[in-house]
Structure formats: C-alpha cells, structure tokens
Design a protein around this nucleic acid. Sequence first.
DNA 1: CTACATGCAAAGCCTTTGCACTTTC
DNA 2: GAAAGTGCAAAGGCTTTGCATGTAG
Lengths: 143, 143
Amino acid sequence: MTAHTRLALRLTPQRRAVLEALRASHDHPTAAELLSRVQQRSPGVGPATVYRTLGLLVRSGLAIEVNIGDGGGARYDGNTGPHDHLVCTRCRRVVDIVQPRPDLSGVAGTGFAVTGYDLLVYGICPDCQERWGTADAEETYPC
Amino acid sequence: MTAHTRLALRLTPQRRAVLEALRASHDHPTAAELLSRVQQRSPGVGPATVYRTLGLLVRSGLAIEVNIGDGGGARYDGNTGPHDHLVCTRCRRVVDIVQPRPDLSGVAGTGFAVTGYDLLVYGICPDCQERWGTADAEETYPC
DNA sequence: CTACATGCAAAGCCTTTGCACTTTC
DNA sequence: GAAAGTGCAAAGGCTTTGCATGTAG
C-alpha cells in the first residue's frame, strides 16, 4: 500500500537536495560526486548526511545502488524503473539499458525464494573504442 | 610483442597455498576468510600477500571476484567455469548456479562492444526461510 | 514539544603501497 | 645473480558512527 505510512521519512532541505541532485544526474554518480553537486546549491551539507540520505533512499526504493566492483565507491541511480546497467571497463561509464527479464531457471532446486536480481553487462563504450580500439578490454584507461 | 611480455607468474609456496585454499572452498570466502584458512596451514602469510595473490589470480583468470554489494569485502570463487551467483539477502550466503546466457539485446544501439556480464540473483536461502519466513526479504539477519 | 535529522570529527573497514629482506628462476 | 615476491607496517579511500546542536512535524 502506501509506503509513506510505514517509513517515517522526514522531509528536510538536505534530503530534498540529495534527491533532486540524484534525479538531475544521469551518469550514476558516486556518493562523493553527488555530495559535490549537492554542495553547489546547498553549501554546508556534509558527507555524513549524503551517505545517510542515500541509504535511506535506497531502502525506501527511491534510488538504486549500483556496485560495479571497481575500487571506487558505489554508484547511485535515481531511475527506479526496471532496467539493467552497461559498464565500460575502460572509463567506468555506466549506462542504463532495458532488457527482458533473464531466465532464472538455474535457481530451481536450490530452495531459494527469489526476490530480485542485478545484471551488469561489461563492454567498451564507443568513445573508448575510438580512442584505443577494442583490444586489451580488461585494461582501464582514463576517459 | 616480445618474448618478455609473458606474464611472469612465479610459483611460490604462498601463492600455491592461496590457490589451494580457494579451490578447497565452495562458500565464496572473503579475502580475510581466505587469509585465515591459508594461515591454518601456512602461518606467517600476511594479508598483503593474500590480497596481491588474489588480484593476480583474478587477472590471470584462475579466480573470479564476486561483489555482492553488502558492506563486507569482495568474495572470491575458484570455480572459473561459466556460472552465475545466487545470494541470500539475509545471511549473505553465495551459491553458484548455472543458467543460460541472458539476452543482452538491450545493448543494441549503445555502440558498446560487449566483453562479459555478471548476473547476481537475490533471494532467501532455505535455512533463512525456515528460521524467519519469507517476509521482510530486505532485512539482514545472522544465519 | 519531542523525536528525529544534521554536522563535525573520529573511527572502522577493506585494500593498497613503500621498503628492506628473501626467494624463484 | 637479477628480477620478482614477501612481510610488516603505514597509509589510503570509502563509509559509518558518537555526540552536541538544530529542526520538522
């Protein structure tokens, strides 16, 4: 039903600023990147608030956390519709893609009750292909 | 391309110990867990060596790094055959599953050259279902 | 008015790195 | 014997937390 009744989500200027910054971003920013964007319009907001708010948004279903497994921090996505992610292994750019739900038949027999999935597709983005070709896909370069 | 470009993979007792511990493990251990297992048979091996060796094994294709996106560290998998991972969102257990390659048609039009993918399926394992039921799937409990 | 949110700073993890010493090839 | 690996300890990056203060409902 109405999620508002269960979650005491107090609307503060900081939380609004984080959500607006996230919704204005389509590049799957890290918490640090989001912090700097928030601070441009709302100086004084600190990292702790951004981290706490992002955790809250993810738990409330208003944001998605994307972990591309590089050394860097988690990425955040304000697009909460069903979609997957395409990651450039060279410049670490992340792009949303829409795909059919994958076959999860491999779960059969495990006894697990499936609640969700994450599909990360890796590749080389057009810019990086143009700059360095498609060889050495596993290497990371600046983009 | 000279003869010197070959990956110099020196076989040391420590590396052998890490690879053996990984191959003996089927629970997708973290680096810290692997370290303690290695130390049981090879005291004196330090964290730095385990981290360096794991990075080496992953880059050499002898191990897979699995990032389930919880606060904990990366998991490692000695099973290098094609497979996906099923993650219990309550106890964080990770299980290998074999599935058909997912439809990656969503990549069409992006210009990306696909090099691979990772599919993580989330659910509740049989033990956790028995202990707490299937409600509140997003909550994490000890297992 | 009161429970909850914020900011600051400190601490906590996980992981990497510098350096002197040891070892493999 | 030269190049590479190891161990220790320190540093690094990301994220969380304790606590006094501020504020939304």
